[in-house]
Design a protein around this nucleic acid. Structure first.
Lengths: 338, 338
DNA sequence: TTGTAAGCGTTATCAC
DNA sequence: GTGATAACGCTTACAA
C-alpha cells in the first residue's frame, strides 16, 4: 500500500555513502568526484527518487509557489490573466495556486490568511468589489510575502501594480463614437467606488468635453450586466431625447444593449451605435460583431507575474513599479464607418 | 527587513513553557489546562503567530494541495470546472494548484513530474489532445498521489473518472433537430481519436438511425473552430443537396456556422437550424440565440474534486468510481419550434 | 498537566 | 572528496 517515498537516505544506504554526499552529487556539486556523481544519479533514477520539495523549502526557508486571487474564474478577462500568470510561472519554475474571492471581502480575508500559513513566495491580487479595508494585504507584506496588485489595485498599500489603461481605452472608444457621428452617448457603468469605473468614466467625460459635447447626467447609468442592460435599455430608448450611442463598461452589458435595441426594431449601427469593453469571443458572436476595447488580460497576467517573480528573486526594479498595459480599440460592426 | 517568522518556540519562550505544550494548547488538546490554553492562544494572537504549513506537512507526511491540469484556461467549459474544483477544495481546506497542458504531451509530462516533486495530495486531470502514452499518470499513482480524470479521461489507467454525458447529449440534440423537421443534419466534429468525439458522434449516428434517417458520410466533417467553420460552411451550403441543419461539437464552431449561413443570405432557423454543444454566454450573444447542449462544467469540477478529496481522506467509494454528469439541451432561437 | 526527545527530508557548516 | 552534525518548524510517544 503506502509505498514509502524514496529519500536521499535510501540512496545513501544503497551506495554505502553518506546522505550529504548524495545531496551534493544530486546537484552536481563541484567537490564531488565524477564517479560518485554518476553512481548517485544512476541510483536515483533506478530507485525513482523524487526530491521532497516540502523538506527542501522548509530547510531553505523558500517556496516556489505563488498565489493568484481572482474575483471570478469564469470570466474572459480574469481567465486570460490567469493564463498569463501560469505561463510565466511555469517557465520560471513556480507553481500557481488559484483562489476565487467571489467578490467577497470575507472570503478574501480567509484566502490571505491561508496564504500566510502556506508561506507562499508571492501573491497576485485584484480586489473584490466589496473590499474597502486593506489590513489583510498589509499583513501579507508584514509576513515577508511579495505582493503585486493587478487591475483592481489597492491604493492604500505601497507595492507594485499592473493596470489596464482604462482611462485612455474609454477615451479612445468614446472618441471613435464621436468621430462616427454620434452626439448623445449613453454610458453604462459599474458602481463608481471602483477605480476602473472612475477611470473609464473620466475617459468618457473627457472625450465628451474635448469634442465640446454636453455632459448629461441623465445619460449615465449604473448598469454592468447583460440582464440589467436588457431591462434598462428599453426605458432609455423611450426617453424624450434618446441616445444615439451606448458605451458599456463590459461586453456582457453591451450584448444586452444590442439585444434590447434590436427588440425595439432599431438598427445597429445605422440608428444606434454600441461600443463595449473587454474583448474576447463574445464580441465576435454578436451580430453585428461588437466594437469593443480589448484589455489584453494575457499581457496583464504575464507582466504581473514577471514583476512578482523578479521581486521574489530579489531583482529590484527601483522601489515600486507601476505598469500600464495598453488597451486596443477593436472596431467592428456595431459602430459606423467614418 | 526579513522579519523572522514567529514560531511555536517563540511562544514557548515568551511564556516559559515547552514547545510541545504550546503545540497542544494551540489545537485544544484535552490534556492541557484551560488556563494554559487561554494563555497560549492569547500570546499566539499577540505575536501574530501563523503555523507553518510546510513544516506541518513534512512532519505529518500530508499535504493539503491538489492540482488541476486543464488543456486550456480561457475556455468556458474548463474554467467552469476549475471554478467547481476551487469551490469544493476551499470548503474542505485544500489549496488548488493550476496547470495548463496547452494540449501538449511534453508539457503534461513536465507538469506531472513537478507534481510528484511537490508531493501534492491529489491530481485532477483531463488529457491533452496529443497524449497517447500514459506512463506519466501511472507514475503519479505509483507515488501514492490520488488521481481522478475528468472529461477527457484515460481509459488505460484504473482510477476514478468524471465525464459529461456526451452520447446522450448529442443524441438529445440531434433528436430535437429531427423533431423540429430537419432531415439532413450535418455534423461538425473534432478529430475522432478523442473519446468525446467518438461519443458525440455515436449519439448523432444513433439518433439518425433511431428515426430512420440515412447516415451520410458526406455530411460529417472534421471542423471544430469558428474559423474553420466560417471557411467550410459556404462550401457545404453549395453542395447539390445541402443540409437543412448543423450540429456542431462546440459553440465556437456553431457561431462560425451561423455567421456563414447569414452571409449566404439564408435564414436561421427558418431555412437552416443550428445546434451547438458547450453552454455559456457565447450562446446568448448570438442572434438568434444559440440552441446548445449545456455541459455543466461547474458540476463536473465539484464532483471530481469531491471524489478526489474523499479518496485523499481515505473515504472509499468502492474500488473505483465512474461519475456521469448529465447534460441539458437548451432550446433557443437557432432551432425551430415544434 | 506538562516536559523531553526524536524525527519528517533536506542542506549548510565544519571537520577529516 | 566525503562524512558527521545541526537545523528548518512542527507533532507525538514516552517520561515525569
Amino acid at each position: 500500500m503506502a509505498k514509502k517515498q524514496v529519500t536521499i537516505v535510501d540512496i545513501a544506504k544503497e551506495l554505502n555513502i553518506s546522505p550529504s554526499t548524495v545531496s551534493r552529487a544530486l546537484k552536481n556539486h563541484p567537490d564531488i568526484s565524477k564517479k560518485t556523481v554518476k553512481l548517485v544519479q544512476e541510483c536515483a533514477k533506478r530507485l525513482n527518487y523524487q526530491p521532497n520539495i516540502m523538506a527542501l523549502n522548509l530547510r531553505l526557508g523558500k517556496n516556489n509557489t505563488i498565489a493568484v486571487i481572482v474575483p471570478e474564474i469564469v470570466h474572459y478577462f480574469f481567465s486570460s490573466i490567469v493564463k498569463g500568470v501560469e505561463e510565466v510561472a511555469f517557465d520560471e519554475g513556480f507553481n500557481v495556486m488559484l483562489f476565487r474571492s467571489k467578490e467577497s471581502y470575507e472570503r478574501e480575508l480567509k484566502i490571505t490568511n491561508s496564504l500566510i500559513n502556506a508561506r507562499v513566495a508571492g501573491v497576485l491580487a485584484s480586489l473584490s468589489k466589496e473590499t474597502d479595508k486593506y489590513e489583510h494585504f498589509q499583513k501579507i507584506l508584514d509576513n515577508n510575502i511579495q505582493l503585486v496588485f493587478y487591475d483592481r489595485i489597492c491604493i492604500g498599500i505601497i507595492t507594485d501594480r499592473v493596470v489596464v489603461d482604462d482611462y485612455a481605452g474609454a477615451m479612445t472608444a468614446v472618441e471613435h463614437l464621436i468621430h462616427t457621428g454620434c452626439k448623445r452617448i449613453a454610458f453604462y457603468c459599474s458602481p463608481t467606488h471602483l477605480e476602473i469605473s472612475k477611470n473609464r468614466r473620466n475617459g468618457y467625460l473627457d472625450a465628451l468635453r474635448k469634442h465640446k459635447l454636453p455632459v448629461e447626467k441623465e445619460l449615465m447609468f449604473v448598469c454592468d450586466t447583460r440582464e440589467q442592460a436588457m431591462e434598462l435599455t428599453p426605458k432609455v430608448l423611450a426617453m424624450d431625447n434618446p441616445p444615439d450611442a451606448f458605451f458599456a463598461i463590459n461586453d456582457h452589458t453591451a450584448t444586452g444593449i444590442l439585444y434590447a435595441i434590436k427588440q425595439a426594431g432599431l438598427r445597429v449601427p445605422e440608428d444606434i451605435s454600441i461600443c463595449g469593453f473587454s474583448g474576447g469571443d463574445l464580441a465576435l458572436a454578436c451580430d453585428p460583431m461588437l466594437t469593443t476595447v480589448e484589455q489584453h488580460g494575457y499581457e496583464v497576467g504575464k507582466t504581473a507575474a514577471k514583476l512578482l517573480i523578479d521581486k521574489i528573486k530579489g531583482v529590484t526594479h527601483g522601489q515600486f513599479t507601476n505598469r500600464i498595459v495598453k488597451t486596443k480599440l477593436m472596431v467592428r460592426g456595431t459602430t459606423r464607418k467614418v
